[in-house]
Design a protein around this nucleic acid. Structure first.
Lengths: 232, 232
DNA sequence: CTCAAATCTTGATGTACATCAAGGTTTTTT
DNA sequence: AAAAAACCTTGATGTACATCAAGATTTGAG
């Protein structure tokens, strides 16, 4: 009945939520087992909230399956998407180390499984295994760099360029294909890029007219000319 | 001759650079002494660069005295100020935990003293004293929250509101006075807020006409009506 | 499969803010 | 103290993008 709450019961025997996650996957088996005893897991349906701004928080949330959007409401009430979490990403850290109130909203974009670890449990882990701290520090510093890049872009680039950069950076570097799978609706993409759906729509057609991209379906875009896109 | 490089020789005997700094000031005396042996200190004249984007990095920089601006150049070459460091603040962390190349510039806004600790030395410290990690994690999560707030503002607020918010948040909450001391030139402020000096100038005079503020000198602004300013 | 709701597109219009330019002021240098 | 350099102000002009509106398409629920 409470199956879905305790991770060590929530799936296949060997389905370690945390083995996917960069901040834990470097651990030896015995340590991994120890961490596992601290993990709680929970599932969310598409559209459900994982947490809300203003709510108190005492856990780190790790995405095991699905996709999660993190967004804020601006002073004037507009929704602004900060980032999209994919499996392996985590959130909730702000509340973990500082005040215990979320400053953003998290909601499931698809059916999602989350692994949670409680504030105190995590802090004990960090003191016991400094390596985990190092991983989280590394992750934080990545996020910080990314966030500052985003800030710089909002402050200095035109919408057109922000869209172009988003497309290029969405390219899977491993795969040969130059097809981008948009991870969200254009409405959400607009919010993420600080613009409107109308503008996204128009700019994409401009890119297409210029032969830079090809819109295959609503969520699939083939990039024909990466370099050209960046010269916009 | 090398006096300025080794902190334990660089000033008063008891002038522990690190005793000011939140990430170290919780340490006991013996640990503090240990950290001190790892610290290198250096002075910079106003306008001098502390590091440049693209340069390799292997140190954490802590501001002991003075003021430092951290800025980036956008894809299109525009300068964008990310933050201003005051005594006690640190930087260089991005390069510390990930790739070893700076993605931003740091330059001294006034004559500045910096304490440095080398990458390897810091990492050993972190493994030895997990408390320090916790402090840095807390500091990081603060910075992240701040950076995301900034992103949201750029994406959703008009320039007018960004300026108003900047003014209000610059108010020293402790002091009774409602006078804000701008920490930088209006040119730099414009870059920080993602606008132009012209617009800053105009908006400030609009605020003044509306009786919301009073420009005392070029760098001193008295806020007459905090609430009014936020309703812009 | 059907219908309703949500999302996307396209055009017409408006506006916040950048840009350009040129004179005035402050700060820095010597 | 004088000269140079950087900064700030103010006006005139331009434009990138938001907003509003209404039809077209996609998505999802029953």
């Amino acid at each position: 009945m409470k199956d879905h709450v305790h991770c060590h019961h929530c799936g296949l025997e060997n389905d370690y939520c945390i083995s996917l996650v960069p901040i834990f996957n470097h651990l030896e088996k015995p340590q991994m087992d120890e961490v596992m005893t601290l993990i709680h897991s929970k599932s969310y349906k598409k559209g459900e909230d994982i947490y809300q701004s203003g709510h108190t928080s005492d856990a780190l949330y790790i995405v095991r399956k699905g996709r999660v959007k993190i967004y804020r409401l601006s002073e004037s009430g507009k929704e602004q998407i900060l980032r999209i979490l994919n499996p392996g990403d985590f959130t909730g850290e702000l509340a973990l180390f500082n005040e215990s109130v979320h400053d953003a909203y998290a909601s499931a974009l698809s059916d999602t499984d989350i692994c949670m670890i409680k504030r105190n449990d995590l802090q004990n882990l960090l003191l016991k295994y400094p390596n985990i701290s190092m991983r989280i520090l590394s992750e934080f510093s990545n996020r910080l760099a990314q966030s500052e890049t985003q800030t710089t872009r909002f402050a200095t680039e035109r919408v057109e360029m922000r869209i172009a950069l988003f497309l290029v950076e969405s390219l899977d570097t491993k795969s040969e294909s130059h097809v981008v799978d948009l991870p969200m609706s254009k409405k959400d993409l607009a919010s993420f890029l600080g613009t409107t759906p109308e503008t996204i729509s128009r700019k994409l057609f401009e890119f297409e007219d210029a032969g830079l991209i090809k819109q295959i379906t609503n969520k699939k875009i083939e990039i024909m000319d990466v370099d050209g896109l960046l010269l916009i």
